[in-house]
Amino acid sequence: MIDPRIHDESWLQRRHIERDGVRLHYVTAEPEPSGEGAGPIGTIVLVHGFPHFWFTWHRMIPLLVDAGWRVIAPDLRGMGGSDAPADVEAYTPREVVDDLFAVIDDVSPRGGAAEKVVLVGFDFGAGVVYDACHLEPDRVRAVIGMENPFVGTAGSVPPLEGSAMIAEKHFLHLHYFAQPGVAEVDLKGHERDFLARVFWALSADFHYLDVWQHPPGTRYLDALPEAPQLPWRWLSAEELDVYEKEYTRTGFAGPLQWYRAMDVSWRARKEFERQTNPVPYYFVYSEHDPDLEGFHGREPLKKLDRHHDDVRQVRSVPRAGHLMHLEATEDTHREILACLADITATIPE
């Protein structure tokens, strides 16, 4: 079920702003005043990944608003209702972080001392919020990473070059997506099938790294498992309808720029390669996340203090894969609220 408030324009506002010629879309929601003159506890910004857009947070937004938070959920450039620049240089950390704070300032304009916000990042969105902590630490009260614990910049081989070498041995989605004009053509007309297959493959109901058993040159649709008919235990047909409608409208060319810009972003992050994140850090992960298993080196949870100065809490969600906020919604919400309770109690606004 989709909370009916998600479709209520009087409760959930949909807005656009333009920054340096790029039109950005976001949604925002305010809590009901809890007393005379009382405002929100604070502002929390939810940053999605791929293949998502703001709607991936549709279950969490009402929860956070009911808990007293002002919520902002942007569509990252390239995805959803935001513009999709064709140049990969437009997806550098500086550009995307500036987008983020342009949206925040549109909701709560800076005047005197700017409000510090809580950032929550999932998938590519985790990289965005970690970049924000490096580039604009004075504007971030705390950061909550979901699934992806840090962004690696070590080594001398850019990520897409490394992916190409791995893809000579077996299928790798990073390399497949990085080739201009390939995936967007393959997936056109197959949006629903792809979304269902990739969501199922990333879940705890399948072992995602099994797609690596396919040989080089395999199409992603052929490497992914066939998904069972909806509804699933954790996803409804109505929810997938929303994803299908949006990706049928936009296509995949814009979202795939995030993969094609990985080398550009890797080089840009060299600026703070030897710096740790100074912002109070919380991490929520699922027990069966394929990113933790296959994309962050050995035992990534033991490396958190190499990347973050102030690790406050590390919390796990059982029985879920990469899409834990959909697969194990109640458990994920409980862990996020626990982080927020600690932030409210221990970190000044």
Rank of each mutant, 00 (worst) to 15 (best):
V279Y: 01
F199I: 02
A29V: 09
F53A: 10
E349S: 15
H190F: 01
E30I: 08
Q313A: 15
T332C: 14
L326N: 11
L160H: 03
L12Y: 12
A178C: 00
Q13V: 06
H58V: 06
H52G: 10
A178E: 10
P228C: 06
H333F: 10
R94V: 04
D106R: 05
Y176C: 07
H16W: 07
H288P: 06
L230V: 05
L195M: 01
M324W: 00
G21M: 09
E184S: 11
E89D: 15
I2G: 05
E287T: 14
L337W: 08
I6M: 12
G294E: 00
G189F: 09
S163Q: 10
T153F: 00
R94A: 11
E168Y: 01
D193M: 09
D222C: 02
P180K: 13
A341H: 12
P85E: 08
H173L: 12
M1H: 14
E184T: 03
R197D: 09
H288K: 07
S10A: 15
F50V: 04
R249D: 00
G49M: 01
V182H: 08
K245H: 15
W57Q: 04
A29I: 09
D222Y: 06
D123A: 10
W258V: 03
L224Y: 03
K188F: 03
G35C: 06
P300T: 03
D87H: 01
Q179A: 13
T56M: 15
L304G: 11
A345V: 02
V143S: 13
D8Y: 12
L340R: 11
H58W: 09
D75P: 04
H322K: 05
Y285V: 02
K188D: 12
H48Q: 13
G35D: 13
P93Y: 02
D106C: 00
R5L: 12
V140L: 00
I41L: 11
T276W: 04
D83W: 02
L172H: 09
G181Y: 04
M324D: 01
C133D: 09
A237E: 14
V96Q: 13
G125R: 02
L224F: 04
T250N: 06
H325P: 02
V65M: 09
I144P: 04
E293S: 11
G42F: 07
D205V: 01
R249F: 04
W212R: 15
E9F: 15
E226L: 04
R269V: 02
W234I: 07
